[in-house]
Design a protein around this nucleic acid. Sequence first.
DNA 1: ATCGCTAACCAAAGCGCTTTGAAAACGAGT
DNA 2: ACTCGTTTTCAAAGCGCTTTGGTTAGCGAT
Lengths: 343, 343
Amino acid sequence: MNLKQLSEILDLSQTTVSRALNGYPEVSEDTRLRVQAAADKHGYRPNSRAKGLATGKSMVIGHVIPSSSQHEMVNPIFGDFVAGAAKKYAECGYDMMFTNAEDTSIEQAYRNLFQRGAVDGVVLQGPKVNEPRIEVLNRMAVPFIVHGRSTGVNVPYDWIDVNNKSSFMRATRFLIDLGHRRIALINGLEDMDFAQRRRDGFLEAMRQAELPPDPKLMRSAEMTEVYGHHETRDMLQLDNPPTAILTSSMISAIGVRRALEEIGLEMGRDVSVIAHDDDLSYLKNGQDVPIFTATRSSVRQAGELAAEMLIDRIKSPNDPIKTRLLEAELVVGRSTGPVPNRF
Amino acid sequence: MNLKQLSEILDLSQTTVSRALNGYPEVSEDTRLRVQAAADKHGYRPNSRAKGLATGKSMVIGHVIPSSSQHEMVNPIFGDFVAGAAKKYAECGYDMMFTNAEDTSIEQAYRNLFQRGAVDGVVLQGPKVNEPRIEVLNRMAVPFIVHGRSTGVNVPYDWIDVNNKSSFMRATRFLIDLGHRRIALINGLEDMDFAQRRRDGFLEAMRQAELPPDPKLMRSAEMTEVYGHHETRDMLQLDNPPTAILTSSMISAIGVRRALEEIGLEMGRDVSVIAHDDDLSYLKNGQDVPIFTATRSSVRQAGELAAEMLIDRIKSPNDPIKTRLLEAELVVGRSTGPVPNRF
DNA sequence: ATCGCTAACCAAAGCGCTTTGAAAACGAGT
DNA sequence: ACTCGTTTTCAAAGCGCTTTGGTTAGCGAT
């Protein structure tokens, strides 16, 4: 069922039917109702490609997922972020398109997406330090939003981010206040911007407390459970092991916990642990009292807000740049406590 | 840059340029090269909406994510499945579209997707028992593939699934062979087809060993970490607690482990645990020796295969129905052992 | 009766591509 | 020189929608 057929059934012109359906004023209320009823009855839905061709808008927003052949990691926060964004998209009549691109050709992928007219805007996820994609999108003058920021990129761009630095500063200070001096940081890959900011926050708090950071206690890799486990075991074998561990994700915190228990140490008593908690739907941090003391910020909500900001940008391309910095909350759970006496 | 402009630059007709670019034979090799070069030089990419309109194909495959307002869970396997599928889509020139729909209106969402001409096929994820969506798609006579199967649905359809029943049978038998008699099943929501099959496998193995299943030891809910923890604590407080636990996901297995350790029980010695492992990229089950004994089947691979099968279906709508049953492997890790003597 | 104005509707162009059916261009065969 | 079969190119129609620039009908004011 297409417009032509529908208009023939109604004995009206395509123009009138189209206008009736899209709520233009120059249609009598009678005919509008009649058209609406017929459209419902026949289950008419305008072909989105034709509509897109005619209007120049695709009503689609693109996400590029960089799935390189080397490290096959899918970011676990992906699902929740997308779910948040998708909700907002649906409300505003947008669809969501994913493209897979090799790590090396992500810029190509964005360019492709726009030049083909496949999307009206894109979300840039997981920006690195000096993220080249931002400048590319900026030059292309297309609507986009960055989930995160990129140190070293000086062009203006819309972004939404968690205040990684301040939350890791607070977490570190919290540990210092509990008497900890040997504090370890199990961080994400440090070419990722968020990881660098977290490290900065950690280092800043240490500096303020006049504690020299120990390079041996600072680790950085992709945040899997196994990684958290491995680094923890490794650090606890040092002559001077950490009494507290700060970790960049709940997933690796679980590995940290496993390592502690294997060695026979109790989390919260022998070793304190603070994790960053993205508030993933399938990985809630305990029920009443959180298992982990954590810096918490819902990535799902971030997705929703990002979507909203992007849609605003698409609607008003010339509005001033918008940015949004979310503060993570520090929730205190059972994984932290004062430094044990023997130290 | 569009076809018209490009053809004017080349002083050729749109027809010829289009044909040159799409590899039709009736174009001389000279002009083909000339056209190709110009297209590259000007970064010409055919507008996909126009192309879609003209060809009647959208080169897009749709996924509907049911994000109901009630239970906000995003399936954690979502990311890996999608990554697998996306890879295959990209290879074959397809894009991937997501639509968010309320639990109540998923059928509407599929119908909408096709009638708008937005997609050439869809993937149906997470089928329930008696899944109504399958019959809907069947009636619509559109290409689709089901990740999983649906007991009670008798129309033919393409599917790819893990042999849930046999893998849970094997796992249960493995525990029985180790001497376990009190075996608990921490399952997913049992209106989900996969969960029902897993329970069937479990019950079948129990029946074959002439062990009466204890309803108190069979739990069912959404597979979060907290859920695994909660049910384990609960069951271990029974007069006659289980000596082994079978769980439907690694995430809840982590909760099981946490509960055991809180109580002071050692996994593999005091209580055996087997988990189903979807082989998620961020949740690898240990490095050399797996942490959990597990029934393992890569959901990412399933995504890739599903995509392939769907694309085949789109290309040959009249081929006979294709189905694919993947066998999970039973990998033995450190979480299982003989039943303790005291029993 | 004429004019002007508004309300309601319409024919046709155009979005950027593919594809059909036809027309040049070019050798080879007579 | 003329025809015939290929090869190569093209003009124009069509995909399903929106939108421009009308036209027509109806009504009160002149």
